[in-house]
Amino acid sequence: MLQIIIQGLLLSGLYALIAMGFMLIFSIGRTLNLAYGAYIMVGGYIYFWLSQQLGLPKLIGFAGAVAVGAIMGLLKHRLIVKPLKGDPVAVEISTLILAVIMQSAVVLVFGDASKILLPIIPGVVTISGAQVTYNIVAATLMSWVIILALYAFIRGTHTGRAMQAVSMDQKGAAISGVDPDRINMITWAISGGLGAAGGVFFASYTQLSPGMWVAPVIISVAIVIVGGIGSIIGTLIVAHIIGFLEIIVVAVWAPELRGVFTMLLIIGVLIMRPQGLFGREEH
């Protein structure tokens, strides 16, 4: 029981982190950014390359991954989203193409086989019979630090509030002196960085493989939509629902069915209540 709670909390924290970066973009442009998965994948691989293949300190590996993710986000905004003028279908499709390109790029550089990421912090602690690695505890703590920092940034800083304003009303924000273009750029960069950070932890939780990006993308889109677009609290709650759901299914049923119920939940909620469990109805 305790094991389920601990593991549920840990996985949920990870999902919340991954979903945050996605939420930023989705709440601004209602863009289904499928290439978000590419940040997750590239983040994991860059960390692997810097810290495991080059043997650099882990912190540098992590910083490198976040930096590359942020740059990818920036480039995507410049080269794809802006030229397409935010046409949602075109962006959706071009991000799908981009994600597949990134996947083949990863295969090209690192090969097709999956790789095991060494734990970021080695060691195991046993809590009432449950084996919990320090690594996943660290991942969850980091997730929470990043989520809280993001929350403080959005609520507390000028740029953060401007991001919120743009997400509610692009034109209105422009009238009140916010440059939506600059804010969009910043948002895409932060989203890329968050995705890459989430990718490092996600990879250390599962493993590195070129196809690893699909499931987290679907889960993060689902968390964001089911949680209600733009609602940080809703995102957190749904991340926990999905995290616990998966852990419970694995513990009491069968590990293979892990994703099945998540997908069923997503499909069900989207069809019955497209505005999400905690969102307002959009006009």
Binding site: V89, I218, I225, V260, M263, L270
Partner: peptide, 28 residues
């Protein structure tokens, strides 16, 4: 068919989730 009630990205997402669901269900 129920998904045709919903629009845009939501429809795309449901269909993507259905595909992923089948990938996980078929082998088990």
């Amino acid at each position: 068919l129920p998904a045709l009630r919903i629009k845009g990205s939501y429809f795309a997402l449901v269909t993507l989730a259905v595909m992923e669901l089948m990938y996980q269900l078929v082998p088990v």
